[in-house]
């Protein structure tokens, strides 16, 4: 029931966001329609980072409680995180080519996202190379914590190294028109709902997978 409501809410908000992005919000004066990718790009980036935070919290919670539920949340969130970070890494260059006249630069935001993507992959690699369920959960929880601590250090080191990414949000507020701001906020909300909808479903899938593994184990032993 909860899942159904969440699904419908996600659908409605996503449709609203799509309408706002493609019909309502005006084109950016200099960049034109290509700027519209920004709403999906920023929202995906937000989910990418948020999913990583969830992996970190789930890792801590697992180590303290040893409840498998937390491990399921962690791995589901990591999978969704990989997907959204991939979207960020694809939409970024599409926008960057017409705007900066280059596909890729080694800017802090870009590079941190790339490192984040590699960290997620490492997390999933650890999981796929361990058989024992308990050990798998424990090791990936530990790696999730270590990796999350690393991200701010990555950020600072690259910021001192070089920067050209546009700073949309700074101390003086948002450098956007009110309409663009509304659209961005609705897009962020839509992606957040989408994240939670995907999370509950991926968790269900993970649980089923564990059940199947348990059944197989029982068959082998009988």
């Amino acid at each position: 029931m909860f899942n159904k409501i969440l699904g419908w809410l996600t659908f409605i908000i996503t449709m609203t966001a799509l309408y706002l992005v493609f019909m309502w919000v005006p084109n950016e004066r200099i960049m034109g329609p290509v700027q519209k990718i920004f709403y999906f790009h920023v929202s995906s980036a937000w989910i990418g980072f948020f999913a990583f935070l969830v992996v970190f919290i789930a890792g801590l919670a697992y180590l303290f409680t040893r409840d498998n539920k937390w491990d399921t949340i962690g791995v589901s969130s990591a999978q969704i995180g990989v997907m959204f970070t991939t979207i960020v890494l694809i939409t970024g260059p599409i926008w960057a080519k017409p705007s900066w006249n280059t596909w890729w630069t080694w800017d802090p935001r870009l590079t941190t996202t790339l490192v984040l993507w590699f960290l997620y992959l490492a997390y999933l690699m650890i999981r796929s190379s361990i058989h024992e369920e308990e050990k798998k959960a424990r090791f990936s929880a530990i790696f999730g914590i270590i990796a999350f601590i690393d991200v701010p250090i990555v950020w600072f080191s690259i910021r001192w190294w070089r920067t050209i990414h546009p700073v949309v949000v700074d101390s003086s507020g948002f450098a956007m028109s009110p309409k663009m701001f509304t659209t961005l906020m609705v897009s962020l909300l839509a992606f957040t709902f989408l994240y939670f909808y995907l999370l509950t479903n991926t968790m269900k899938l993970e649980k089923m997978r564990a059940e199947v593994a348990g059944l197989k184990e029982r068959l082998r032993n009988s």
Binding site: V115, A122, S129, I142, D150, I158
Partner: peptide
């Protein structure tokens, strides 16, 4: 210490270590 307990430790270690030591 983490990688040695996995199946393919020698490939896994660089994959999980390199992204972390970027800074």
């Amino acid at each position: 210490a983490l990688a040695v307990n996995t199946r393919n430790s020698e490939i896994l270690l660089p994959i999980i270590l390199f992204p972390l030591i970027v800074p």
